[in-house]
């Protein structure tokens, strides 16, 4: 609180006229998180570029990602095909650009859904305790016993690999983690005097949960969302690689690599390009996630 005071007024002045610190607005928080470190700046720019590429995919992709050509199979990079062509003569760059849509949508959508359901379950378990807590916690323990990827493969194999199925798969795989964090945070926020004060002021239970509990547990959940966006992109690529994610011939970073594997000895460019795209995005999102976490938890600074 003291670091925002620019001048040092006398004690009487402080007592007489309350010091009003500038409101910590969104813009300041943003600049502190993003602009503090060069690595975060770069990561942020990278993510923005990839999002733009995904949004503008049909406009900037030089070729139709599905068009095959027997005359141009397995080419190395040329002026016409910057990243070469794959075993069916499809332009790798165009496939990569169109594939970024799938990967980023999965990467952003599933953690958001998982955060939504996980928070509801976790807050319910933490706030009400008792039998509610026991039932929810046991279900979550059960889901957590499976590694995320195994669970994802299980559900994808059972339901098939359509778009919404993959979203459901990843959401179910991620929900337990959010529920755990939300439950633990709720248990500590529930003890805060301001929650008791709100109850004493006659605020009803739903109101207390929405206004006093959820805003105060949102920080760790946001961090988890950032960190799991990266995992989500990775798992989607893995599922597509294994053939139970995005269905060929539609491009996704995972099945670009999968297709590239078949012609690995003719051209390495599809594998290389797909792998690099995944690496860059996952790294960038992880760096942003780390930075947000460091910002929200002062104890991890330095």
């Amino acid at each position: 609180m003291t670091d925002v005071r620019t001048e040092t007024p006398s004690a009487e002045l402080i007592a007489e006229r309350e010091i009003l610190a500038p409101e910590p607005g969104f813009r300041e928080a943003f600049s502190r998180v993003v602009l503090d470190r060069p690595s975060t700046q770069i990561a942020f720019v990278v993510v923005i570029i990839f999002i733009l590429v995904a949004v503008l995919a049909p406009l900037i992709a030089p070729y139709d990602p599905l068009r095959q050509s027997m005359l141009r199979i397995n080419q190395t990079p040329t002026a016409q095909h910057w990243l070469g062509t794959d075993q069916f003569g499809r332009d790798v760059l165009s496939r990569l650009i169109h594939g970024s849509r799938k990967s980023l949508i999965f990467g952003l959508l599933s953690p958001v859904f998982a955060a939504f359901f996980g928070t509801i379950l976790g807050v319910a378990a933490g706030y009400f305790g008792g039998i509610v807590d026991r039932v929810i916690s046991r279900i979550i323990d059960m889901l957590m016993a499976f590694p995320e990827l195994l669970l994802a493969i299980l559900i994808a194999a059972a339901l098939g690999g359509s778009f919404w199925n993959i979203v459901v798969v990843l959401t179910v795989a991620f929900t337990p983690g959010f529920a755990r964090v939300a439950r633990a945070s709720t248990l500590s926020v529930k003890q805060e005097p301001y929650v008791e004060a709100a109850i004493a002021a006659g605020v009803s239970t739903p109101h207390i949960i929405i206004r006093h509990i959820i805003p105060n547990i949102s920080a760790p959940i946001v961090v988890l969302m950032a960190l799991w966006s990266a995992s989500s992109i990775r798992i989607e690529a893995t599922l597509s690689f294994l053939g139970i994610g995005t269905r060929p011939p539609n491009p996704s970073w995972g099945n670009i690599i999968r297709d590239g594997l078949n012609s690995m000895f003719a051209t390495q460019w599809p594998i290389f390009a797909g792998g690099l795209a995944i690496t860059i995005v996952v790294l960038a999102i992880s760096i942003i996630g780390d930075s947000v976490r460091d910002h929200l938890d002062p104890e991890t600074n330095q």
């Binding site: 004493a200 206004r211 105060n216």
Partner: peptide, 24 residues
């Protein structure tokens, strides 16, 4: 009870530093 609390009986707590929600 919520209808009584705050409306008919008000209460001031011991810890002023933590009895207000920091986000509101």
């Amino acid at each position: 009870m919520p209808a009584v609390r705050g409306k008919e009986i008000g209460m001031i707590f011991q810890e002023p530093m933590s009895s207000l929600n920091p986000l509101i």
